[in-house]
Design a protein around this nucleic acid. Structure first.
Lengths: 234, 234
DNA sequence: ACAAAAGTGTTACGGTTACACCCATGC
DNA sequence: GCATGGGTGTAACCGTAACACTTTTGT
């Protein structure tokens, strides 16, 4: 930031308005069928009892990435999670209590790994994106924005794997992308496309839980991804 | 934002840290050859005399979009300009004077229309993106981020026209996209592609300033764009 | 034997790319 | 008449999309 006001040689930052800065997290998970988001029932006024994204205020000694990481750990018990800034929302009256700007981040977690205790403690709940309740403030817009970003990003970066177990089947991967895009893909074309990317390894193991025949497990190979030529593009 | 702390029924916003919120603008222009950005020589400490994006602090009664619009008008005299939020930068020490987070916006203006007086008044100057000086704070990162966003957006939305005069030639349009992408395009393929989009009108006028033969002028047709089927994709 | 999900290849189509010559005009 | 930039069409190529049957195995 910079500004020249009245040609003063030294600028008086003191005269400027300060605001509360918040971070809100759109936590995505995938349950083999639907793309889900983690919401909490707000425990204080205003809007007490309504559904809300998880969030918190930015502290003086942390970056927004730090804050988002802290909030994510607080509500899921997880760290080292893929995360991306979405946008900052700054409508003047977005929080009726006090002027607050909020930066939204989305995070991708393996839904089987988060802490069930914390979920209970915070009255949190997973909702399908397509079937979520109305949220407080501008949180619905944040979710839509995050979803759009997730779609764009997942088409050009191999981030979908963050929503799956380390070992996964082709059907799971396909269902994941179908959930993200809310559109069906052709089974053979999808597999051919993924295989042509040459970034996942087929294992000798099979997952026997969803069919009698069983389906092969695969694993993302980060090394192959780094060394690949050509684009990643689903 | 929301947070449940110690199960209090009413949350004390008062206890939270406030920060300065700034807006910095990456103002893009196009001069028939290069993609340019408008920079100012900082008139106060710290970093006095160094080059910087134009910016300002967010005021209590305005949104960030408002602030960006205000700043843009202050430095160029223009309003009603295409603008998009890029991201918020929040490194703790990014501004050495005081904790300040800054949200970057990029704007696309017709470089012939901005106020020359203001440019002079603020010691502002246009620099080719590829040949700009080092900027203060994290402004270099902001520019790179904005440029990437401009590339992505301009591939799927007809925003390039905001950088051109209302009437322009195919060669100008092509050079603009070449500047944005820093890559050459085939003349015939480009024209075929643009024509197939069916969103610009060929006029009966010619621009005689760059060749003896003259080249036809075209005009973006917003109505056709709204009604088109299929994607816009350069 | 049959139900239920997994696995597998080929062809048609459409968009992208590569490419070279003539045109109009001012000097 | 010639130099300069403007304008035009086609064929090869490649990635995407459409499409149906066989395999495995638990019950």
């Amino acid at each position: 930031m910079n500004q020249e006001t009245g040609h003063a040689v030294t600028y008086q930052y003191d005269a400027e308005d300060k605001v509360l800065a918040a971070v809100d997290c759109i936590i995505f998970g995938f349950d083999e069928e639907d793309l889900k988001i983690l919401l909490i029932k707000r425990g204080f006024e205003p809007e007490k009892g309504k559904w809300s994204l998880v969030g918190g205020f930015l502290k003086k000694e942390e970056t927004m990435e730090d804050a988002a990481t802290r909030i994510l750990e607080l509500y899921t018990g997880l760290d080292n999670i893929y995360m991306e800034q979405v946008a900052t929302f700054s409508e003047v009256d977005r929080d009726p209590v006090e002027r607050t700007i909020s930066t939204a981040y989305y995070a991708l977690i393996n839904i089987r790994e988060h802490s069930k205790n914390l979920i209970k403690q915070f009255s949190a709940q997973w909702f399908s994106v397509s079937n979520a309740p109305h949220l407080i403030f501008d949180h619905d817009r944040m979710v839509q924005h995050a979803l759009q970003r997730l779609r764009n990003r997942s088409a050009t970066e191999p981030i979908g794997f963050d929503l799956l177990p380390q070992k996964f089947t082709m059907r799971q991967l396909q269902k994941l992308y179908e959930a993200i895009w809310d559109a069906p893909f052709d089974k053979r074309n999808f597999i051919n496309k993924i295989n042509s990317l040459n970034i996942i390894d087929k294992l000798d193991e099979k997952d026997m839980t969803t069919s009698r025949k069983g389906s092969y497990l695969y694993q993302f190979n980060a090394e192959k991804y780094e060394k690949r030529e050509g684009k990643f593009l689903i």
